[in-house]
Design a binder for these strands. Structure first.
Lengths: 260, 260
DNA sequence: GCTTGACCTTGACGTTGGGTCAACCCTTCA
DNA sequence: TGAAGGGTTGACCCAACGTCAAGGTCAAGC
């Protein structure tokens, strides 16, 4: 007769594992000796070794039971099914590895390459790191919400950057983000923005971004929350009859002294 | 300002996941509105998307924190380490698959091919299924305890099977297992055993099995527990001065009426 | 007879990444 | 005013054990 640790040693498992197998009913509880110790016979060793062999081969314990009692054909079927699950798990991990490799390659998290390239271009154009950080946040949300549209939007952005006025705009915005509280600068930005909006309106391009309302609101919120000047700029623009940031709309000009 | 379900939807995760991230400190708890609801800003969306992207790429949540706050070089290092872990996990699963395939190939559990072949030979020699079951149990334990010695032992067994007396022994034992309670048969077995033991003793082969004492005791226990006739046979042999089963020793012959 | 150390017992909590109730509160619409 | 459809916290669930905690038992040495 064997104690639990002898049994465990014979089968190459831990005492804790044996008790676990008892608890889940894989190994029947043996009789106790007069002091309450579990007392095993050699048949338990054999069963435990079988359990351990299957578990070691990646069979979930919940499946070990049926496999032990299975006839050879069902045994083969069961094994095949478990193998299928193992294959699926391996594939999942391999997908993870590829994703991880892509994350390591693109310096940014959660951004497709086109956006990373675009942000790099902005940096080369002299846009400040603080403003880039805000842009990055916005693009992360676009990538999450409208991944199918993002490359087209980026392409449009690159096109806009061909325009010197747009480049000037980025330069001014960048400056404003770095020197906070300069109201004259905000007015200058507003002037430039208005020129660009008017041009876009003439070309019929106002409000043609492909985002849904939710995303538009979210992006405006990002902008408002990431810099205090943003609210002031939007207010100025609204006085002049332009509402929104991600999606621009014409509104009746507002009296600057009227609180909305 | 966003509610938790809006936030979760924007980032493509479940509400429960967001709360989980709060609990483990990955995502800071936001302020509550006057009714106690969590109220998120857009920065939370960005952080949550980043978390989700990393988690989705197989990064354990415990690592996501450091990776999010890491400078690019450390980020690369961390990613590489996680990739190593993913590789290791994949290897582990692949080993499991191979083991599983071997289990499916060999019809028996936990037995090397040599043993399976040996058992097949016994079956061909006409050994009964009941006795084979006992043999299998013993070999399972040998395979678990002394895997390095097993092939040599099996080879020796094959050699013994060349001897007609040994084959006769198996035949008789097999018969005894199937017709229980036939004492004359047990005596016949004992006679044959004694002849074989004497021959082995002359050849100096008695007690040269390579197992340690523990395993020897265990194997004898298997034999004793798996068939009631076994105890009777061992008693007869001990009367004649032979002790043990797995390892045979000479002892002084015993008076059959003396209780030990 | 006493102590010591090794081994046994049960019970409970931790691990990973959340899923799934349960019970109750808040907002909104008819 | 009531019902629907949000929200909140809290607690238990999965797999396969590891790791205490707190105490009973055994064998051996003094």
């Amino acid at each position: 007769m064997l104690t639990i640790s002898q049994l465990a040693t014979y089968a190459g498992v831990t005492v804790r594992a044996v008790r676990h197998y008892h608890k889940i009913g894989l190994l029947p509880e043996p009789a106790r000796d007069r002091s309450g110790y579990r007392s095993y016979d050699s048949a338990a060793v054999v069963r435990l070794i079988r359990i351990h062999t299957l578990a070691d081969a990646g069979v979930p314990l919940a499946r070990v039971q049926e496999l032990l009692d299975a006839a050879p054909e069902q045994f083969g079927d069961g094994v095949q099914e478990i193998d299928k699950e193992l294959r699926a798990e391996i594939r999942r991990l391999q997908v993870s590895r590829r994703r991880l490799a892509m994350l390591a390659a693109g310096e940014q998290l959660a951004l497709p390459q086109s956006v990373v390239d675009y942000l790099d271009r902005l940096r080369r154009e002299g846009v400040s790191e603080r403003y880039l950080e805000m842009e990055r946040g916005a693009w992360i949300m676009i990538a999450a919400q409208a991944p199918e549209a993002i490359d087209a939007v980026i392409a449009a952005k690159h096109e806009q950057l061909e325009d010197p006025d747009t480049r000037k705009l980025y330069s001014l915005v960048s400056e404003a983000v770095d020197n906070q509280g300069d109201d004259a600068l905000l007015v200058e930005i507003a002037d430039l923005l208005e020129r660009l909006y008017l041009r876009a309106a003439e070309a019929g391009q106002l409000g043609d971004e492909p985002f849904d309302d939710q995303l538009v609101e979210l992006l405006d919120a990002v902008m408002l929350e990431s810099a205090p000047e943003a609210a002031r700029l939007l207010a100025i623009m609204e006085e002049r009859g332009w509402k929104g940031w991600t999606r621009i709309e014409r509104v009746p000009p507002r009296d600057p002294d009227t609180q909305p």
